[in-house]
Amino acid sequence: MNGAMEFLLWTKGPMFQIALGIFAVGMLARLFEILLLGRATNHAEARAGEWLPGLRTVFTRTIPDPGTFRRAPFDVLVGWIWHLGFIIVLLLSVPHVELVAGVFGVSWPTLPNPVIDLLTAITLAGLVAALLHRLLHPVKRRISIPQDYLVWALTFAVVLTGYLAYHRLVDPYPLALGMHILSAELLLICLPFTKLTHIFTTVFARWYNGAAFGRKGVRS
């Protein structure tokens, strides 16, 4: 028996365990490595504290400065839109919250399905626009490496299969749901080893930047 239901149960069972295992090994290995390596010792005398400027920068760098926005309005706007859409759909849709509740025993309020549906559509459009811009913009095309396209494809696949599953556009449905779960698992597996690691490292990187500037007594 090799049908859609077996495929779904495989993605929900053994494959889910494998993906979680690889993610846990890879992500913790990378985080511990980064944190324990630390930064090179700075022998210069500190002019100001590190902690407060570091923490402030974690938040201030989230909002682009006017210069960046003027130079690259598309990247800022579209980047913001699809990142926000992705995070909201990931954290606030009913099946995802049920998954977390089922596995970890914690849950939180959710958004109604039609809202999630709209945000998913916006996220999909944003991702397509981001890819087109990457392909059409001469500078962005030149600085793109194959991994950038891989990371885009992994992200897009998760959102697209989720949209297809919700609207039951693939028949039979267990196949649609299985494809969605499998693409999420591929994303999890690749996360520690690609640029997707930024999901976790963004915060540290910003803190390091802010702290370094703070130490020098410079605003960042």
Partner: peptide, 21 residues
């Protein structure tokens, strides 16, 4: 719910995390 996996081996997952760390 349909989205919840049948069972998660929490010990193996913790072990994997510890190994990674």
């Amino acid at each position: 719910a349909v989205s919840v996996p049948p069972r998660v081996n929490a010990e193996a997952l913790l072990g994997a995390g510890a190994a990674g760390a």
